[in-house]
């Protein structure tokens, strides 16, 4: 009786161990097949872009490409800055101060990812109800600080990591 039981136990153990270790192996093989679709090393290395901003007039903006996405760089006039800062946070679906969206001391420069946070379209400049940007795809309105004011987009347009290399050059990424 006990001999029989032992036999069964050993068999069960063998099969369980085989299955378990086999499953671990299958998992280890599947991972490379998934990971190969992630950004490769060359893509990861192209993470920074330097932009010359010396020729941008106040009130105007340029669009540059960073990681395959548009970056809006706008030199705002003092009226536009004042307008952005006059907005009450309670009126914002995604409350954020304008001061938090720019580098202090360089308040005229708004650098943001020009991608609508709804479904990824590129909003049009100087359009919409809030003197900022308007996304034509599904009607999201952004203000002069790039904050969402009306429409289906859930959050403000994203501010990428950037820094001023000197007064005429910024480095994005």
């Amino acid at each position: 009786m006990s001999k029989e039981e032992k036999k069964v136990n050993r068999r069960d153990f063998l099969f369980t161990a085989s299955y378990t270790i086999g499953a671990v192996g299958v998992g280890a093989v599947i991972w490379p097949m998934i990971d190969q679709m992630n950004p490769d090393k060359a893509q990861q290395a192209l993470a920074t872009t330097e932009v010359d901003i010396s020729s941008i007039e106040p009130g105007k903006s340029i669009t540059v490409l960073w990681r395959g996405k548009p970056i809006f760089i706008k030199k705002r006039t003092s009226e536009e800055i004042a307008e952005a800062r006059a907005v009450k946070l309670d009126d914002l679906p995604d409350p954020q101060k304008d001061e938090d969206r720019v580098k202090s001391g360089k308040d005229e420069w708004l650098v943001m990812l020009g991608v609508c946070t709804h479904l990824g379209c590129v909003p049009l400049k100087d359009k919409g109800d809030f003197n900022g940007w308007f996304c034509p795809c599904h009607g999201s309105h952004y203000d002069v600080s790039g904050r969402i004011r009306k429409g289906p987009a859930p959050t403000n347009m994203e501010i990428p990591k950037f820094e001023f290399v000197d007064s005429n050059t910024i480095k994005i990424g």
């Binding site: 490379p32 990971d35 190969q36 992630n38 490769d40 090393k41 060359a42």
Partner: peptide
Amino acid sequence: MRDVNYGWLI
């Protein structure tokens, strides 16, 4: 071979 994740292996 150089850049793709596990490209060399595949």
